[in-house]
Amino acid sequence: MSFLPSRLPIIQAPMVGSLSPLAIAVCEAGGLGSLACAALSPAQLREQIAAIRAATPAPFNVNFFSHTAPPPDDAAQARWREQLAPYYGEIGLELSAAGSGPGRAPFDEAMCAVVEETRPPVVSFHFGLPEAGLLQRVRATGAMILSSATTVEEARWLEARGVDAIIAQGNEAGGHRGMFLTGDIHAQPGLFALLPQIVDAVRVPVIAAGAIADGRGVAAAFALGASAAQIGTAYLLTPQAGRSALHRAAVRAGRDDTTRLTNLYTGRPARGLLTRFMREQGPMSEVAPAFPLATGAVDPLRAAFEKAGRDDFSVLWSGEAAALARETDAGDLTREIWEAARRCAGGVDAALARQLDTARAG
């Protein structure tokens, strides 16, 4: 049924903070569970892969960031700390608590060695692809290789470098934009504009991603040429997602107009639910250091405000379909979405047939 090694053409989007329990539940239901690895150490990655394999024989996906780490910039960090200083004072933190290190690591030699050792069935990348030598080593393990494109140009670039499938990430999607050939967030198409254009432009399978949260969305994506659907936000309220109480509350209150693209948390555009931080300092800021260096000074604020029961600086990544997230088991949700997609596709076909019959009769 699927070009993927999973039984169902549904991928659980890799989301930092969601570890092996979510991937296992989705895998057991027939979907392709995913593990976000950008915030893991090599040792933690080994542990998470071992946990997945101990719980299910099903195939799974590991996802890495492939950005180029920026050089240190003391002046930029100083401006950023100065911008955040009033918040440090408000919550009673010393500004010296502000860090300057990276919050997300790119795919490197150490992570590549773990991939070679553990041989996950699917390896996906965000922000393009790693350098050619590392990519070739991943390919030599036999893994299926996926990567995200936010424009047709990026999709063609990925196909030219031999990926097995392309994830078309619409502007509606939660979390970090996968953009790597452009920095212009205003040029980012929504999924229903982007998807058919990428399908027409490349020969490899295309996976639809961006505010797909139920069977209707999956059926619509397939009607536009997708070969699979990647779903993230819909899983945020499942017990396996590992989300904080503050994040869950924000998702429950989410509407179609309550997310924004922001660079405040990491230095790179990502979609999340509105917070005080985003309202007062952004959502896009010219002062935020380059990705991922903005993270170091924000993390102490996030932790301090969360300790006080407040989400002022919380990272509340979410797509535009937060209102469609459901509080149910992740495995059940995967099966229900696929069955609903099948019913919806059949209903669309029947309705279209009736319309055509009516037009012919007229």
Rank of each mutant, 00 (worst) to 15 (best):
P57I: 07
R177P: 01
R271N: 02
P70V: 05
I10L: 15
D214K: 14
V62C: 04
G162T: 03
T68M: 09
F180K: 05
P283S: 11
P86W: 01
F125H: 04
A353Y: 01
P106F: 02
L129F: 10
A39H: 06
A39S: 11
R161D: 13
P14K: 05
L22A: 02
R252G: 08
L181V: 07
G103V: 12
T259C: 08
L158I: 12
G30F: 08
V348R: 15
A38S: 11
E339K: 14
S20V: 07
G175T: 04
Q197S: 08
A187V: 03
G232D: 00
A350C: 07
A51R: 15
V26C: 12
F65K: 07
R343H: 08
P5Y: 05
Q44R: 14
L146D: 08
L158E: 10
R119H: 09
T141I: 13
S314D: 04
T275F: 14
G215W: 06
M144P: 07
P21T: 12
A140N: 10
G92L: 13
E159D: 10
D214S: 14
L146S: 08
F313W: 06
S147Y: 02
L224S: 02
A325Y: 01
L191G: 06
P289Q: 07
G89V: 00
L356C: 05
A288H: 04
S66C: 15
A211V: 09
V114K: 06
L301I: 04
L191N: 05
Q12N: 12
R343F: 01
G128Q: 07
M284E: 14
N171C: 11
D184K: 06
A25D: 07
A58N: 09
D357L: 15
A39W: 00
T233C: 04
I167Y: 02
A226R: 09
A55S: 15
L93G: 09
L4C: 12
V123K: 12
T68D: 14
I10A: 03
P189G: 06
Q281L: 15
R139W: 13
V122G: 11
